Simulated assay, not measured.
Amino acid sequence: MEDRRSAMEQIAVDPDVYSADGPYYPDDWQSETTSIGSSIYRGLMENGRRYQNLRHQDYLIPSDDQMFESYEAGHLVALVLDSDRENPLFRAPVRDARQILDIGTGKGIWAIDVADMFPNATVRGVDLFPPPVSWMPPNCVLEVDDILQEWTWREPFDLIHMRIMIGSFDPAEWDRVYKQCYDNLQPGGWIEQLEASPRVECDDGSLPEDNILHTWGPNIFACGEAAGRECDTLDTMHEAIQKAGFVDIQDITYKWPIGPWARDKRFKEAGTVNFHHWMSGMEGWCMWLLTKFGSPEPWTKDEVLVYVAKLRKELKNPRFHIYQRARRVWARKPFPDEVERSAKTQEGSAGKSDISGGKH
């Protein structure tokens, strides 16, 4: 069964956000997010940012303190917008999980939160770079590994989770990742993925058509395509998960406000946090892409920094009612009898086609 849902209704604007003495403008949401700590792990330094060096190919997102901070902000945005749910961490109907895997765990925040919520489960977070954490629950294990290699975990998983992975793989690698997930889930186990679009959107025309913010998404998409790492995962993951053999595929689309311009308290809080998500993340999101694949020729580091500074200035304008789309997809690995029934149905359909064709 396929259930496509949406949380994409237009967000009501809070007129009080424009007031200089209002509760959200300007100081408490426009302050720059600062680094969370010193560099304690080795990695490849390029353009002043640290990247993983486990896989023998470039990785477009840095693995440093500033990027880990951005991951944390993105995690909080997702939590705020699902805070009306009993479980805001994932939507897959997993009740009594024993083994959970978080791919691309980043700072490990999601894995740690899930381990706290499900103390009887073993939660593994895996990434290409060690997360800067000093404590974690005893049932949480954070590992450094490349999931494109053969998986060595012995226990099948009840839930495999991914989030904000755009640009991580080329299309063939994505197919391999989804197949690995399918093969390493319990029958009846679930996969869930949350992605956010790099495109800045606006519903009411408050963002002028010639504003530089409109260039951000197209630049990221074009560079990702040139790099062979398409950044359209938000739009392709539903079909890719279905192609891997999963069933009961469901999804929901969100609007993540950027800035506290929304009237609704939950959207306002999410927008405030998402503003910091963008302010701390933009340089890392685009530095590798633009210095390698920028148009009409690769950009210099200084050109990227100037571009990001201009974007940040526009993001601070509270009169721009802007947001990005996000999408969550969850799906189930079928039980063996379901696979068998599906195979028989397909064989029967093929046989009828052959018979019908033979009559002409």
Rank of each mutant, 00 (worst) to 15 (best):
E9P: 02
Q10K: 14
I11A: 01
Y18M: 11
S19V: 09
Q30N: 15
E32D: 11
T33C: 04
I36A: 07
G37V: 02
G37E: 04
R42F: 11
R42D: 09
R49K: 15
Q57S: 14
D58V: 08
D65N: 14
E72I: 05
H75Y: 11
L81Q: 09
E86P: 08
E86R: 14
E86V: 11
R91C: 06
P93T: 10
D96T: 13
I103T: 05
I103M: 02
I103H: 01
T105Y: 00
T105W: 01
K107D: 01
G108T: 00
I109N: 02
W110E: 02
A111P: 06
A115C: 09
M117S: 09
N120T: 12
R124P: 04
R124W: 03
R124Y: 11
V126N: 00
V133A: 04
W135I: 04
M136K: 13
M136G: 07
L142Q: 00
V144Y: 06
D145K: 04
L148I: 11
Q149D: 15
T152G: 07
T152R: 15
W153D: 14
P156C: 06
H161T: 03
M162V: 09
S168Y: 01
P171A: 10
R176C: 11
R176N: 14
Y178K: 05
Y178Q: 05
Q180V: 13
C181I: 10
D183H: 12
N184E: 09
Q186W: 04
P187H: 14
G188W: 02
W190K: 02
W190M: 05
E192H: 09
S197E: 08
S197C: 10
P198K: 01
E201V: 08
D210H: 11
N211L: 12
L213R: 05
L213N: 00
H214S: 09
H214Q: 09
P218N: 12
E230D: 15
C231A: 13
L234D: 02
T236D: 12
T236G: 07
H238K: 12
I241T: 02
Q242W: 05
A244F: 00
D248P: 00
T253Q: 09
I258M: 07
G259C: 11
G259T: 05
W261H: 07
K265M: 12
T272P: 04
W285N: 02
C286T: 13
C286V: 15
M287Q: 07
W288N: 03
L289R: 03
S295L: 10
S295R: 12
P298Q: 11
W299C: 05
W299T: 03
K301G: 05
K310T: 15
L311W: 02
L311K: 00
R312M: 07
L315D: 00
R319D: 10
F320T: 03
F320S: 07
I322R: 00
R325I: 10
A326W: 04
R327E: 03
R327N: 10
W330I: 05
A331G: 06
K333H: 11
E340Y: 10
S342W: 08
A343F: 12
A343N: 12
T345L: 11
K352I: 08
S353K: 13
S353R: 10
S353I: 06
I355Q: 12
G358M: 12
H360M: 09
